[in-house]
């Protein structure tokens, strides 16, 4: 193995690379529909809710990832039902759900046998501690996310583009929005171990934001977003190994860097052209 790929000699780094790849592909696959709906930070909110699940899992000494998944899915459904009512209190209700979620998680973790130390790996990510069991969970979730967004993508797009038209034409708007919310929860839980709940939205939004600068259709934005997501995740993991920096934050900085360079390039090209 070449020196550049030396980090793959270690089992924990090979697992980290697979986890990064799964997150890098699945997060933008969901994120493109969230950005279209101007709900880019919804993943951030669901991450907060997932913290309560982590806390509950640690207190009960059950798999925190699975409990976080269940909690995030419940939170996603409640969130979508609140949003669907389009009331003035929806914004406040969402804030209650999000901040209640993270506060609940902090309190629960403080009662866990391991104490608050274990919370950090969920807040900021701990990709190198990914286990084989985690990889199986992530792999199944990522496969389902990509398969469903590819198959149902045109319907998600239709509802995101014009909810009234979609409703009149007979599309099941609420069911589609609930499905997207649940898949956002899936993605949040997958990304939680890679970049941490505080940076979850970054992988859903930044590769998509970069892709829309280059793409000439919704479909190409969707596909390019996944390619860029995988590329920045893999580069970020490798960079974090050699620079000895936290992997989640490094992945996000690489994504921001790629966005900045692409924006600059597109800007220069439009000035010249």
């Amino acid at each position: 193995m070449t020196a550049a790929l030396e980090f793959l000699d270690y089992g924990f780094m090979r697992r980290a690379v697979v986890a990064a790849l799964l997150v890098g592909v699945s997060a933008p696959a969901v994120g493109v529909f969230l950005v279209q709906r101007r709900l880019a930070l919804i993943g951030d909110g669901l991450g907060h809710v997932a913290v309560t699940g982590v806390g509950l899992g640690l207190v009960l000494d059950r798999a925190p990832v699975i409990v976080a998944l269940v909690t995030a899915v419940v939170g996603a459904v409640v969130l979508e039902l609140i949003r669907a009512r389009r009331t003035e209190i929806a914004d406040i209700a969402l804030a209650m759900l999000f901040y209640g979620g993270i506060a609940g998680g902090v309190v629960l973790v403080s009662r866990a046998p391991a104490g608050g130390r274990s919370l950090n790996q969920y807040l900021f990510g701990s990709i190198t501690s990914t286990t084989n069991a985690d990889l199986i969970t992530f792999g199944v979730l990522a496969a389902v996310v990509v398969a469903v967004t590819a198959a149902v993508g045109p319907a998600f797009f239709a509802v995101g583009d014009d909810e009234d038209f979609a409703a009149v034409s007979g599309l099941p708007v609420l069911a589609l929005n609930l499905t997207l919310a649940v898949f956002t929860a899936f993605t949040v839980v997958i990304a939680m171990r890679v970049v941490g709940v505080l940076l979850v939205s970054a992988l859903m939004v930044i590769p998509v934001a970069t892709a829309q600068l280059l793409a000439r259709s919704f479909r190409s934005t969707y596909l390019l977003g996944m390619v860029l997501g995988a590329a920045v995740s893999l580069s970020g993991v490798a960079a974090s190994y050699y620079a000895d920096t936290p992997s989640g934050a490094t992945i996000v900085l690489v994504a921001v860097g790629v966005f900045a360079v692409t924006s600059l390039g597109v800007g220069v090209r439009s000035q010249i052209g």
Binding site: V35, A151, F218, T221
Partner: peptide, 25 residues
């Protein structure tokens, strides 16, 4: 919308319900 979409992609949404979800184009 911040995400670009073509005229054909937009018009295609008017046809979705006929093919079912997920449906073939």
């Amino acid at each position: 919308s911040p995400i670009p979409s073509t005229v054909e992609e937009l018009v295609r949404t008017g046809r979705l319900v006929r093919g079912g979800i997920p449906g073939r184009y």
